[in-house]
């Protein structure tokens, strides 16, 4: 066999191995050490993670949290986002410059618009089987009938085989029995204000509702920093400083200097 042929074969074998074994070791970190530790070293890459908003008004925060996770999992690979049409009407259409502001470069994104729940799941599963993708975000509306235990197991399986993290963003949905590796509830939280009391970087309170590995029940207040593409722990300080126009001494934030440089709004 020629040398080139051998190379192809080697790659193929590597690919098959990647697909068949549960890649327990392949995890990505959120950037928040405490959170990562309680998950056993970060979120599983080849798995499906389900994210809920604590209320309808927190849907944007849930989406931003998912974008953050996708960026943690895949700093440069393409991201595919499947969205049910109704979500756009109800919660707003995806605004590419806003994605860029969160660190997700719009040219990396493929958006698939599906009419109904079954379409969303079908496209999502198809995408979840495509290893070169960095992440797949699936956003159906409400509780589609087709999103049953079988469908969620299939997504989990597809993600496990391809190694692509799948984020099921449950816009307007309620938790149902499912196979997700982790399940989160996201709520907007007060940001660390900038100079002249301008709203700061996105801050969320994320609660781990369920973890197949068993660490559920805790919550964290995390801040997303686009520049370093990482979450960081805000702790309690972020929550208490919302009324002041004072620049906080930022005990938890990893980027205190940047705040000082900021121009006034």
């Amino acid at each position: 066999m020629s040398k080139a042929g051998l190379e192809v074969l080697k790659r193929e074998v590597a690919r098959l191995e990647r697909g068949s074994s549960p890649i327990a070791s392949a995890r990505f970190s959120t950037g928040v050490a405490d959170l990562d530790n309680s998950l056993g070293g970060g979120l599983m890459r080849g798995a499906m993670h389900e994210v809920f908003a604590a209320s309808m008004l927190d849907e944007a925060s849930a989406a931003a949290f998912v974008i953050g996770l996708a960026l943690r999992a895949a700093p440069s690979a393409p991201v595919l986002w499947v969205r049910q049409d109704f979500v756009g009407l109800e919660l707003g259409e995806i605004h590419a410059p806003g994605l860029a502001e969160l660190g997700l470069s719009p040219e990396r994104l493929i958006l698939v618009k599906a009419r109904d729940g079954p379409g969303v799941l079908r496209a999502g599963e198809e995408a979840a089987r495509c290893p070169p993708l960095g992440a797949v975000i699936i956003e159906p509306w409400g509780n589609p009938k087709t999103l049953d235990l079988v469908a969620s197991r299939r997504l989990m399986l597809a993600a496990g085989r391809s190694g692509v993290p799948v984020f099921l963003l449950r816009a307007g949905g309620a938790p149902l029995p499912g196979a997700a590796a982790t399940r989160w509830s996201v709520k907007a939280a007060a940001s660390v204000p900038l100079e002249a009391s301008a709203p700061g970087h996105p801050v969320f309170e994320v609660s781990l509702m369920r973890d197949r590995a068993g660490g559920a029940g805790r919550s964290w207040i995390v801040e997303w920093n686009r520049d370093v593409r990482s979450f960081s722990d805000v702790g309690d300080e972020g929550g208490s400083s919302l009324s002041g126009g004072v620049v906080p001494v930022s005990s938890g934030g990893p980027h205190p200097e940047e705040h000082g440089l900021r121009r006034a709004g």
Partner: peptide, 19 residues
């Protein structure tokens, strides 16, 4: 080109807009 982002700024445009 997509607008350049300056370091340290929070997001100035939302990821979702209503139309």
């Amino acid at each position: 080109a997509w607008p350049a982002l300056s370091a340290g700024e929070p997001p100035l445009r939302p990821p979702r807009i209503f139309d």
